[in-house]
């Protein structure tokens, strides 16, 4: 079970045993023949004001976890407590009003803004639906939001296609901010941007976090970005959490063989340093029939018999570092 990393901090979001199994339909009658176990029994906690990152390779269930928390896809089972209230137990209309507090920024700024709406409409709709600002003050508020993300007031009536990728992502951020949320889920929020723009947007996210006391769940496959922005990092593999720790502990002493392999793949900008790269053999197994026991055992260089049969539980290495591996004492 998850331990509270720091007793002085207040948990904002607690995810317990979250499962997201997508049915696979087959045959003439469209019966459910199997399930893709995209997220399988994931539990973690995010504390107020921190940034928790989820890392892992494509298809490990990072984004699915984010969407399941927001109920953008209905999760199969589990519970998600936000400030003590279970989001998954809420009715649709209760959930709609909760959405004010939980916002999301998507990966692709070209796809996440409605091409038929101007900036004023995109942001104004958010303000109107949650009734945050009275109608006559909305335009002012939109201009204020734009200035927070470094856009000019005269750009308010433009359409998404008139902006660059970085600018669009800023609009996405402004839209999320418009709701005055407590938690923002950044789903690969900078992956689609150029490296120079990535840094700008990351710094913007950081300064907004300070200004508005935001909490981030940051989903990324880019370890460099994760290192820059996170307080804590959670590593996922094939729908399971394999390791979760504060940033320093994770990057300095990764415990799980998968985490070690991931970190060894980060290029070091120093030619004199000889880097030992751990190369993983084979492909990620299918999430339809994931391996028994530890899901990583098919590719783990250290796997023993026990790994093939017994699912490792998340255990404490120390108070802020948990790992799910039989080989870590």
């Amino acid at each position: 079970m998850m331990m509270t990393a720091d007793q002085t901090k207040k948990p904002l979001l607690e995810v317990q045993n979250l499962k997201q199994h997508f049915p696979i339909k087959g045959g003439i009658l469209g019966r459910t023949v199997n399930h893709v176990k995209a997220v399988d029994d994931v539990s973690f906690t995010i504390f107020e004001g921190e940034t928790l990152s989820i890392v892992g390779e494509s298809g490990c269930g990072k984004s699915t976890t984010g969407r399941a928390i927001l109920r953008l896809d209905e999760p199969t089972s589990g519970s998600v407590f936000f400030e003590g209230k279970d989001l998954l137990a809420m009715s649709k209309s209760q959930m709609r009003s909760m959405r004010k507090d939980l916002q999301v920024i998507f990966q692709d700024p070209f796809a996440s803004l409605n091409p038929r709406q101007s900036v004023a409409q995109i942001l104004g709709e958010a303000l109107a639906i949650q009734n945050i600002v009275p109608a006559n003050q909305r335009r002012e508020r939109i201009i204020e939001l734009l200035s927070h993300v470094g856009l000019r007031p005269d750009q308010i009536d433009r359409f998404p296609h008139e902006f660059s990728g970085g600018q669009r992502q800023r609009i996405g951020i402004a839209r999320a901010l418009a709701m005055q949320p407590k938690l923002i889920i950044c789903d690969e929020a900078v992956s689609a941007l150029d490296v120079s723009i990535q840094a700008q947007v990351l710094n913007l996210l950081k300064s907004l976090q300070k200004e508005f006391k935001l909490t981030y769940l940051f989903i990324s496959h880019d370890l460099g970005v994760v290192r820059h922005i996170s307080d804590r990092v959670m590593v996922m593999y094939l729908g399971k959490v394999v390791e979760i720790a504060d940033k320093k502990s994770l990057f300095d002493s990764p415990q799980h063989p998968y985490t070690q392999a991931l970190l060894s793949a980060i290029p070091v900008p120093d030619v004199s340093k000889k880097q030992e790269r751990i190369i993983l053999r084979g492909d990620v197994p299918s999430p339809i029939n994931p391996p028994q026991g530890c899901r990583f055992h098919t590719r783990c260089p250290l796997a023993v018999e026990r790994c093939k049969t017994e699912v490792p539980a998340l255990t404490n290495v120390h108070s802020t570092h948990q790992v799910a591996c039989h080989l870590v004492p």
Binding site: R67, M98, F106, A111, S112, L113
Partner: peptide
């Protein structure tokens, strides 16, 4: 994604279907 965005804003399903999806 912008339909997901609309859903994340907390819009009603009818508004999402007719205003965001249908118009596009």
């Amino acid at each position: 994604d912008y339909i997901r965005t609309a859903r994340a804003k907390g819009l009603r399903e009818q508004v999402i279907v007719y205003k965001h999806a249908l118009k596009n």
